[in-house]
Every structure is written in C-alpha cells, then in structure tokens.
Design a protein around this nucleic acid. Structure first.
Ligand SMILES: [Mn+2]
Ligand SMILES: [Mn+2]
Ligand SMILES: [Mn+2]
Ligand SMILES: [Mn+2]
Lengths: 221, 221
DNA sequence: TACTTAATTTAGACTAATCTAAAAAATAAT
DNA sequence: ATTATTTTTTAGATTAGTCTAAATTAAGTA
C-alpha cells in the first residue's frame, strides 16, 4: 500500500519515464514534483524497497511492472474524475486538474468501478488522454504534435500535453478544442511558429510552445 | 486552513459536543478517534491556537463559532458525498460511510457547490442526517429514539444514529429503512426490548441497543 | 590524464502526528 | 481531611516527509 505522497512520486516517475520505458534522473523528479533532490533521494530508496521502482545509486530509476500497474491505477482514477467533473458538474477543462489531483488518492475499488460505469466507460479524459481500463490496459492513439504537421496539411485536435489552466484558457481564447479541425497554413522557419486555421475560421498565429502542446491526428486529404 | 487530521478531530469534537453545546473531555475524544489521550492533549492545544476550539488545561474543550462553521463544512461534504454514492453510484447505505470519510477532505469550494446542485440540494443524507446548506445552516427535525416511543404508538423512521455497516445490514435484514412506518406492539420492562411491526408486516423483536439507534417521528394517530 | 563542473547522496535538523511511561491535577472514597 | 483512583498532561521517542549544507560520485573539458 502506497501513501498519498508515494503515489504522487510514482505517478510522476511513470510519466517522466514515458510509461516505464526510459530511465529517470533524480533531478528530473525533483523538478517535476517541485521538491529538492535530497528529498527525492530519500523517497526513491523507499519506493525501491517497496518494489515499485528499481534503483541503484547514481544510476537513476526504472519503474517495475508492479510500479506501472500501480501508477496506471492512480492515472485511471485521475482521468475518470476529470470526466465526471466536466460531464456532470459543469467544470471547464481548465478547472479539473487540481481537484483530480486530490480525488485520485481516494481508496475504494468499488467507487472507481462504479464511477467508470456511471460515466459509461469513457476512453479519454477532457484533455484527450486515454483512460486505462480496469485491467490497466491503456491504448495509445496515433497522434503527433501540431508543430510536426507539415504546412498545408490538416489535422484533428486529439489531446493536449499541458493540463494547466493558463494553457487551456489560451486554447479557449483562440477557439481550439478537442475534435476541432486545424489547418496549417504555413510555418515560420525562424521561430517555428505557425499560422493556422481552426474550423475554417480566420488565420491565427501559434507559437512553437503552444504548437508542441497540441496533439493532432493527421487528416489524409 | 486545517489539515486532514485536524479536520477529523474537529468534526469528532463537534459531534461529541452535540453541535457545540457541551464541553468535551480529553478521554472522550481519544475514545472516539481511537487514539491515546496523550495525542489528544497535543492536538487540542493546536486546535485552540488555531481558534476553532477553546481549551484550558484539565477543563475540557468547547467548540468556538469558527470551529462550528468549519466542522459544518466538513459534515456538509461528508453527507453530500454519501447522497451521491447512493443515488448515482448504486452504493448501499451501509457502504458509503468509509468512502465519505475520505471524500469529505477534498478541498474545492466549486466542487462542493456543483455537487450540491447536481444532487438537487438534498436535505438529508442516506442515514437521515440533515445536510447543512452552503451557509452552514442546519435544520434539525423533530425526532425521538424508537426506544422512547410509547407502546401502541406509531412512528416513521427518520434517521439512524449509527452509520456502521453491521448495524445498517441488520436493519436491512429486518426490513427497516428510512421512511418505513413502525408500530410499537409492546415493550419488555426487564430489558427494554421492543416488539414492533414494520409496514404492517409480522411482529419483530428489537433490542434496546437497536431501538436507541433508530430515530422516528411520532405519528399522531 | 587532471581539473572543473554538475548531479547525486548523506548528515543533521525540522514539523506533524503518534505512542509509552511517568508526573501532575482533579475526583472520588474512606 | 487524608488517601486512593481516575483523568489529564508532560517528557521523550518514533515515523513520514521535507529542507539546507556538506560530502561524494559522475561527467565534461582542457
Ligand atoms: Mn489532470
Ligand atoms: Mn487530464
Ligand atoms: Mn457517514
Ligand atoms: Mn451519513
């Protein structure tokens, strides 16, 4: 059984490791969790002892298969709660993340299965992120960064890489939303900014930073 | 701002004080929270410093008006979540208390107001306990213990005094539920047990312990 | 290879919450 | 009014999680 703090570390490490693939450094964890590297050293030793990561000093950490399954359980809860907040409590997609950070730690297998059922077994959360099923199976969808779309091609907005409210409010402002059709009019060599059209609207400028946090599925036209 | 543990202490003290009325002793708190009196001594000094209770050594504690309002906020959340679990996630009334003990600590004013709205501003929880409104106003309903009902009189089951699953499962077994009509056939002098009829069903025996945890509104027949 | 810098770990200290054992105060009983 | 008992508080330790500062290891550079 993991504490709330341990769950947060594990989830963060899982994300940084790209689903268990990459090795993760102490500093990267400290950065993501907004804590000090010294605290991370302590915690990863503990998580290693609990078997959810494997760690050798100065070598960074890897998530074990038990760790992956535990992380996916937390992520499943986080994303199901986000769906609930948006679909039933009229939250905007930029208001859900903070609350879901708390709700994801509620311990009750019955609760989460009933919530999943209540929501109709949703496949993605309000940010387009896939929701692991009760077995921990998560299916990725083919999606690339908007910034990697070639000029003149078109895509559908499938997900966002940043669930912070400032980014999402910016998307609201420019009229971008999940499911929107987006056409890359052209791309500026110098700063990698884009000019795009959303749903055949007027031309908008999009910075490299924004473009890298919008995930699209290319439309084969 | 109170920690999760402080919220639990305050809520317990509020309940033991009967809504802020009575003074509460260290041992009573320790008993209710299943902790040691030494721990309670530490905590009540802290809660006093935070202004939610007033405490003088060896004198027990009283809940302040700030304390009452903070306790009612936690209780409101607890009871709203219980309604959600029963009405929307198909939980039985004996399954909700443990989960609500966790959910009551989620911090988000928006969440709780939206949940209240989603639920249609319910007035009581699945155990018949009144839900404070967003201003912290809680209106008690006239109800007495089943054990205090005189023989031959009839009442409606309005609430239960014990939300533990074993008690509630017992009620399920004998067919007692909120809203049921209950007739006291007669009362045994010796052990204060009752013989009752629920909704004109067959005669049942009810012990003093059970009778004191069932709250009824007397029917003026 | 030797030196410099960056990353990581350890040492020691702190807060929150808890416990056991012992001391002090308040009640109850002779 | 003295004891005896119960209640409450204090003293000292423990665990989880965090921090700063110092030591250690690894990596980068000349
Ligand atoms: Mn989120
Ligand atoms: Mn999300
Ligand atoms: Mn309850
Ligand atoms: Mn209840």
């Amino acid at each position: 059984m993991l504490s709330l703090v341990e769950e947060n570390y594990l989830k963060t490490i899982y994300h940084l490791s790209d689903g268990g693939g990459q090795q993760v450094s102490t500093n990267a964890i400290a950065d993501a969790i907004k804590t000090k590297p010294a605290s991370v050293s302590d915690m990863i030793r503990k998580l290693d002892r609990k078997g959810v990561i494997s760690y050798t000093k100065y070598q960074g950490v890897n998530v074990t298969s038990e760790g992956i399954s535990a992380a996916l359980k937390v992520i499943r809860k986080h994303r199901l709660w986000e769906v609930f907040l948006v679909q039933h409590l009229k939250f905007n997609w930029d208001e859900v993340h903070e609350v879901a950070e708390q709700l994801e730690h509620i311990k009750s297998p019955l609760l989460i299965e009933r919530l999943d059922e209540f929501l109709g077994h949703p496949k993605v959360d309000p940010h387009g992120d896939p929701i692991p099923d009760s077995q921990g199976v998560i299916k990725a969808r083919p999606q690339i960064k908007l910034g990697d779309l070639s000029p003149k091609s078109e895509g559908l907005i499938m997900a966002v890489n940043d669930s912070g409210s400032s980014f999402l409010q910016h998307l609201d402002k420019i009229g971008a939303y999940l499911g929107a059709r987006i056409l890359v009019v052209d791309k500026e060599e110098f700063d990698s900014s884009l000019r795009v059209k959303i749903d055949d609207g007027e031309i908008l400028f999009i910075s490299k930073e924004v473009a890298s946090n919008i995930l699209v599925e290319e439309l084969t036209s």
